[in-house]
Design a protein around this nucleic acid. Structure first.
Lengths: 227, 227
DNA sequence: GCCCTTGTTGATCGTTCGCTCAATAGAAGG
DNA sequence: CCTTCTATTGAGCGAACGATCAACAAGGGC
């Protein structure tokens, strides 16, 4: 990899005197892998050891450990948000169920990732607002447009006439949660289950989507005027 | 702060010189609440402060912090396992879907608990085998008998003739995960969502159960001989 | 009243944490 | 070859960690 001088104990030569840009990227990627593995209470000394660098070097690039973690949030969650998701759930050329299916298949493939899932729940446990803010985005930017489309497809009142009810969101979050749980069992609970989680989630969608519109209709009508 | 007879800063008088039994129980319950809140990396000094006792007293009742955490596992998970669950899923007087519904409603009510859910995922993040072992119990003691009953109800080969397939378990874990996710969003991600999570889960079951047997039949037949 | 048992504490040990700073060393320009 | 710039490091700070131990104090039996 690099070079006449310096190699880490793990065998990977670090190469010293990187450009600031490269070193920063190396630190961020190493921090993502490390904190995903041991949790956000991981230690800066151990992170530095894994990177093959001295611990004070971390503080040259990030003023505090908290700042490094904040950077991880941006890198793993905000940067990986796909604007295409917001487009597909509004794609009038597709039936709503197909929009939902396409979103979930793509979304789950993106977040069924060791670092994504583990740092997400780790942040939730530490009381950071990242998970609630992120799921708020899913709710408002993905599920709300989907529910609006489902209302229209079922000839039900628009959200303007009858605001979206919590129970309608729960319908989508229920299916969503079943799909997320597949990844959680593997990445967080450490269960080496079915090899092809993509296929498992596709099957779950096949089982859950056909009845969704009818259930949604019932929920909306039950929550309608004088309901 | 500490007058003649000692009181904690939180207002609750600690009362010193408890019997060993009472002190131990107080420590265990306090530790459950504390580690659930801050994670298993919480500090013994802070735990002692919240209990209104000196930190070394913890080590009189538990030799190490790890031993205290091990005790928490027994208290929160193994002791709260309900033998009735294993009975109801084998109750031949009920249709399988009703057995499943009753199990899930009771089970979810038990585990939708701040300490239960947070310590569970915290243990998973720390790489402890508690979550995988616990879900292994659910799989073998709950879902396996349920699937066997569903096979019988649908006049399909028994697990003896055709072993239970991973895809069949995923069918149940899918619905299960959707229900667990309701609690996770509230207890771990900090989303104060629908007030009545019991009702939300009941609605999810109403939506998911009716199609379950038919889907299960398809899965078993697809995975059958020369499948 | 006194003693004995034992629940409880203050002081403290060795280690490790996040973080700082002066000194070092590798690359680029003359 | 020498200077300049800066990425990088070794040494170390104050604080907090898990854990230890001798000393203290609250009851119960005599």
């Amino acid at each position: 990899m690099v070079s006449s001088r310096r190699e880490t104990t793990t065998g990977g030569p670090t190469g010293r005197r990187l450009t600031a840009e490269n070193r920063e990227r190396q630190i961020v990627e190493g921090a993502i892998a490390y904190f995903a593995e041991v949790g956000l209470d991981g230690h800066t000394r151990e992170l530095a050891r894994r990177l093959g660098i001295a611990q004070p070097l971390l503080f040259r690039y990030f003023p505090t450990k908290a700042a490094l973690i904040e950077r991880i949030y941006q890198e793993v969650y905000l940067r990986r948000w796909d604007a295409g998701w917001e487009a597909v759930v509004r794609d009038g050329a597709l039936p709503c169920l197909e929009r939902f299916r396409r979103f979930e298949i793509d979304y789950q493939r993106r977040i069924d990732d060791y670092a994504w899932l583990r740092i997400f729940v780790s942040a939730g446990l530490k009381g950071f607002d990242l998970p609630s803010r992120y799921l708020g985005m899913v709710r408002e930017r993905i599920f709300a447009p989907l529910l609006e489309g489902m209302r229209a497809e079922s000839n039900l009142p628009s959200p303007r006439e009858q605001p979206l009810a919590p129970d309608e969101f729960e319908l989508l979050f229920g299916i969503h949660g079943a799909l997320v749980y597949v990844g959680l069992r593997s990445r967080v609970y450490g269960i080496d289950g079915t090899p092809d989680r993509d296929a498992v989630r596709a099957a779950m969608l096949d089982a859950a989507l056909p009845g969704l519109l009818a259930t949604h209709r019932r929920v909306v009508i039950a929550g309608g005027p004088k309901g």
